[in-house]
């Protein structure tokens, strides 16, 4: 099993990566590109799991080298679970990326990072409802302080592939 950490640039993805992995982090060049990515290891229930910090990307419709690598990485690691890191203050943009990944058939866990900043900006997110609609685990986190990281890890094994049409019908059904 492999884990891919995907998200927009500047959503605290690297901080979260540091909180999740320990030492033995290797930085390397993705084959055939000039884009660097980091790889580390973490433990889930005593099992060692590789975690790859995918370069920040806005969508899976690549517009630059880094995004190309991100897409390539997804394709090269088809059996991975994806942790999609979303900036809680810009949830729409993040959800778009998350939906794209869900559509590709990956099991996804969503980390709503910068939860504290969202609170500061008076943004309230109905977590329960979001989980219901998306059908994937959604965990609020504050990577800089480590808050919620443990819960995030405990939810990784709950990630399952989700059919996008189910999400659509859920959303339709309620509105």
């Amino acid at each position: 099993m492999k884990l891919l950490l995907i998200g927009h640039p500047n959503v605290g993805k690297s901080v979260l990566f540091n909180r999740l992995t320990g030492a033995n982090v290797t930085e390397s060049n993705y084959p055939g590109t000039t884009v660097d990515y980091t790889k580390g290891y973490m433990q889930i229930d005593g099992e060692e799991v590789e975690l790859i910090d995918v370069p920040g990307t806005f969508s899976l419709d690549p517009k630059d080298k880094a995004e190309e690598v991100a897409v390539k990485m997804l394709k090269d690691n088809e059996d991975s679970i994806v942790i999609c890191v979303i900036d809680s203050t810009k949830i729409e943009r993040g959800l778009y990326l998350a939906l794209e990944i869900i559509e590709m058939g990956y099991p996804v866990v969503i980390a709503l990072n910068m939860w504290d900043v969202a609170k500061d900006k008076d943004i309230e997110i109905d977590l329960q409802r979001l989980r219901e609609l998306l059908g994937v685990p959604v965990v609020p986190t504050i990577a800089v302080s480590g808050w919620g990281v443990k819960e995030l890890v405990s939810k990784i094994k709950d990630a399952k592939p989700r059919d996008i049409s189910k999400i659509e019908s859920k959303v339709e059904g309620t509105s």
Binding site: I91, E92, Y96, L99, D122, I123, E124, I125, D126, L134
Partner: peptide, 16 residues
């Protein structure tokens, strides 16, 4: 779809 989901789950201005 994103907009619909956001509409339902995100509210601005309540939390502090």
């Amino acid at each position: 779809l994103v907009d619909r989901i956001a509409e339902e789950t995100v509210t601005y201005g309540d939390g502090k």
